[in-house]
Write a protein that binds this DNA or RNA. Sequence first.
DNA 1: GTGATATAATTAACAGTGTTAAGTTAAATA
DNA 2: TATTTAACTTAACACTGTTAATTATATCAC
Lengths: 200, 200
Amino acid sequence: MGVKERRAREKEQLQRQILSAARELFVSEGYEKVSMRKIANKIEYSPTTIYLYFKDKADLLDSVCKETLLNLLNTLEQLKSDISDPVETLRKSGRAYVEFGLKYPQDYKLTFVIRPQFQKGLGLEEGSVGEQVFNYLREMVSECIRQQVFRQVDVETTGQVMWSAVHGVTLLLIDFPDFPWTERDKLIDTVIHTTIEGLK
Amino acid sequence: MGVKERRAREKEQLQRQILSAARELFVSEGYEKVSMRKIANKIEYSPTTIYLYFKDKADLLDSVCKETLLNLLNTLEQLKSDISDPVETLRKSGRAYVEFGLKYPQDYKLTFVIRPQFQKGLGLEEGSVGEQVFNYLREMVSECIRQQVFRQVDVETTGQVMWSAVHGVTLLLIDFPDFPWTERDKLIDTVIHTTIEGLK
DNA sequence: GTGATATAATTAACAGTGTTAAGTTAAATA
DNA sequence: TATTTAACTTAACACTGTTAATTATATCAC
């Protein structure tokens, strides 16, 4: 009676196939320029098959973004070892966040800019991966405050300030690649350093 | 022989009419969801007439964004009176920038997020309005450095850090309106205050 | 005022879009 | 082997940006 199991496995496999085809195309051509037919061609199925696995194009985007957030979360979680020096950990996390965005610029934009335009339910709801990412940041900041390194005692505000800084520099670097930026690493470091110093 | 002049005036008027119809629709429905036919309907011309005044849809977006940048520049320029207290002026400018973004969230996104996706030539080239906006910021920062209020002496980096902060918080507030943000004004003030303190 | 000219605006068309409903094929069950 | 069920496809709808060809209109010279 392993038939159902196999079929379920096959369904899951095709779903993943669709998803990764969609991601590849979204990243290389941009969400709007990718058609359901293009995705279908890539996986060698008819366009309508996709609708058996995803509600619509926005749902596809949704799933792609969820994966991206999971990747971001994993990247970050590998850093929270040193609780002894919370500021250094926060600094590293900030850097890792920006670097993630610059390593996968299109994925970052899809998740944090394009998606909100289509899905009003931002993907930061309770229990979501997005919330987990922000929880990670909250923890980092919380430890800094607990050890009385930061002036400001409001964890929420402090976290949001930090997020603003890294989100801002990430998007600017992605969106305006031809702007005469200061040397990349220097700019990123200065943004993070400035924010942390300002919070002390 | 004022015929040519009148004709030119009429052409210009229709061009402006198209532009303002496009802006209204872009803002209320989003760039992607607005069709040339919708714009044409609004101004009661056939769709193809638009192509006599604008190269294509991206060109329309381009013109809309240029206007937005001009508005932003005007808003900012009204503030640079007090050279005596450059930090206070910078603080006010930062607030004005964010408030502009939140007052016209769709225009802000069109200009700083959507447009870069279509026009690789970011609108920050030499002599452009975008450059003027950044020049304004440069001046503010420059004065702070001249009066030795800021630690960092690199005008470019300092300005870019400031821009990152305000851009970041503006976009986050626009894109994730349902996130449990700290009280808006407090968050904005803290972001700006933190950045300035960090730069001192 | 009439005819020629230039310019403004339109219609028709093309190749493409997301998505739905109906139809077909293939596989698992009885 | 016949029947049921799940997976997939075909055909269609109303729409998209954009181009080429066509029509209408207003200005000019006479």
